[in-house]
Design a protein around this nucleic acid. Structure first.
Length: 564
DNA sequence: CTGCTCGGCA
């Protein structure tokens, strides 16, 4: 009964059952408490978990091995690794030695933070102690390498597993399938699934959902539907995750009406809706400028007592920020804290962003400091947001200082970081410094792209250095650069499947379309076909690239003129 | 009653 309540997310009812148990003369034991504790931790609601633990102790129930492990898992999930380690110390003090579960969860926590090397070290440590790494340990590390390290290292570990005589299980295979999907290698992904048929671990629900998602992301909706069909034929019912994948695809295609209809009819079709279903549509509404519908959906979700996760909160906070309703956004932030949720980097970045946009750079930095305090690592998003805030507030020197600190600390930066700094420098007329950064970003293989060029071009033009501007423009149309651009577009997975379907994948037809649209000044439409043809793997003629890029420069010029 | 794989936010 209690388990049932937890599964439905009705924690309060679960807790009230504990009281009822007592009325019937049976007392909750540690299993009862551990069950509920586990669900709080899974949902990231640590405050409530803490309260329950306190309650448990007051009832004189000693935490057991399960209790400790549940807490380790809970802390690891939200990235509080120090706290997780404290629990382990506590375990030792209570004569409960960390077991394979404890190690695996800690390794998973480290991988989640991108700290793979430390995770591997922990695995070695296990081997030296009596706790031998198992298939779960390997799966965790393999997935960690794919996510945050190199795939070579991931595959190396797969080999190591084989050498040790460990069998790759369904999860191992699913991790590989997911990785192939992420790389856009759908053929290899489905080949892996086919191999699973022959191994002792046939494809399961996760495999199918992974493939469906992969095909959706690749814009291959036909294959996605085929996979859903196959999933059904193999006896797997589609579940909430399948539904959410479809919802997301519909939203991305701007088919909000269909998405909303699907959401409404889902329960009739036997689907369970969760906070991801609502959050997906919510984000879709905000993206498409239908904020009123989004807010309506939020209250509908609350009415149904579906509990928002930190990501759901991030979505609504971001939406409110975009509406300029900063106060309301902040109040949602406070609400999630009250609900015992732990804000993540995205939460902070979103609010830092809105402060920067409002010119409250000091407040933005306060929040940045808070982030560090909470041992959340400011990431490349944080950096870019702060830099852009400083630049547009006329504090270029401070921006440069931050930029240099960031680099000297060896933290990751990306193309956006460079473009932000370059455009900041250009605005102040510091072209030589900007050029310096352009060559630096080239060295790091981070560009330049048309944002970089347009910043530089704008600065050259306003300095009256027209010859150099021309020179730059011709550099832009170098074929090498276009290759890079098209690769990037592929990676960004820009989706326009409607166009993809509508246009002839014949390379000449595409090229002609693009050139024609450019001639008409419809550069945006031209870009969309360019993206679509990229997706289909259509090779365009060189002149298409040139016309398109020249068109983009003109458009950027037109835009920057409009701004001035 | 605890761990690894699938869906969403920046």
């Amino acid at each position: 009964m209690i388990l049932g309540c937890c599964l439905e997310g009705k924690f309060n009812e679960a807790i009230s059952f504990i009281e009822k148990m007592k009325e019937f003369g049976c007392f909750p034991d540690s299993v009862t408490y551990n069950t509920i504790l586990g669900f709080f931790c899974k949902k990231g609601r640590l405050k409530e978990a803490g309260n329950l633990l306190q309650d448990m102790k007051e009832k004189g129930l000693m935490p057991n091995r399960y209790t400790f492990n549940i807490l380790v898992s809970g802390y690891c999930k939200v990235g509080w690794l120090k706290e997780a380690r404290k629990v382990i110390d506590l375990m030792v003090q209570n004569d409960v030695l960390p077991d394979i579960w404890t190690y695996n969860m800690l390794i998973n926590g480290l991988c989640g933070e991108g700290r793979i090397e430390e995770a591997v070290k922990l695995k070695d440590e296990m081997e030296h102690s009596k706790v031998l790494p198992d298939v779960v340990t390997y799966n965790t590390l393999i997935d960690g390498y794919f996510k945050h390290g190199s795939s070579e290292d991931g595959f190396r570990l797969v080999e190591e597993m084989r050498e040790k005589g460990m069998e790759l299980n369904a999860v191992t295979n699913n991790i590989l399938v997911k990785w192939y999907c992420k790389e856009g290698k759908m053929d290899e992904a489905s080949e892996r699934a086919r191999m699973m048929e022959e191994s002792g671990f046939p494809p399961d629900k996760v495999t199918y959902n992974t493939l469906i998602n992969g095909y959706c992301k690749a814009g291959k909706l036909g294959e996605a539907f085929e996979m859903m069909d196959l999933m059904g034929r193999k006896g797997f019912k589609m579940d909430t995750i399948t539904l959410n994948t479809i919802l997301h695809t519909l939203c991305r295609e701007k088919k909000l009406k269909e998405a909303s209809e699907l959401l409404n009819s889902a329960s009739n079709r036997g689907y369970l809706l969760d906070e991801v279903s609502y959050g997906t549509l919510l984000a879709g509404y905000f993206r498409d400028g239908m904020a009123d519908k989004a807010l309506q959906l939020w209250s509908e979700m609350r009415k149904k007592e579906i509990i928002p996760s930190i990501i759901t909160y991030n979505t609504i906070i971001r939406g409110l920020c975009q509406l300029g309703k900063t106060e309301q956004a902040i109040s949602k932030f406070k609400e999630l804290l009250r609900n015992g949720l732990v804000p993540d980097a995205t939460t902070y970045n979103t609010i830092i962003h809105v402060y920067c946009k409002e010119g409250k750079v000091e407040k933005a930095f306060e929040l940045h400091n808070k982030m560090v305090e909470k041992s959340l690592k400011p990431d490349v998003f944080t950096c870019n947001i702060l830099l852009s805030g400083l630049c547009s507030d006329g504090m270029l020197e401070k921006a440069l200082k931050l930029f240099n600190t960031w680099i000297s600390e060896g933290k990751a930066i990306d193309q956006v970081t460079y473009n932000t700094m370059i455009s900041g420098l250009c605005k102040e007329g510091r072209l030589e410094d900007a050029f310096h950064l352009v060559s630096e970003m080239k060295e790091r293989n981070l560009g330049p792209d048309h944002y970089t060029y347009s910043a530089i071009l704008g600065a050259l033009a306003s300095a009256g250095r027209m010859n150099e501007a021309d020179e730059f423009m011709s550099k832009m149309v170098e074929v090498e650069n276009f290759r890079e651009q098209s690769l990037q577009l592929k990676e960004q997975n820009v989706k326009t499947s409607e166009i993809t379907e509508a246009y002839d994948p014949d390379s000449n037809a595409c090229s002609e379309q693009i050139i024609e649209l450019c001639n008409q000044g419809r550069y945006k439409d031209a870009m969309r076909i360019f993206e679509a043809s990229n997706q289909k793997g259509v090779t365009l003629s060189k002149s298409t690239y040139i016309v398109l890029m020249e068109g983009l420069i003109k458009r950027r010029k037109r835009l920057s003129k409009a701004v001035q």
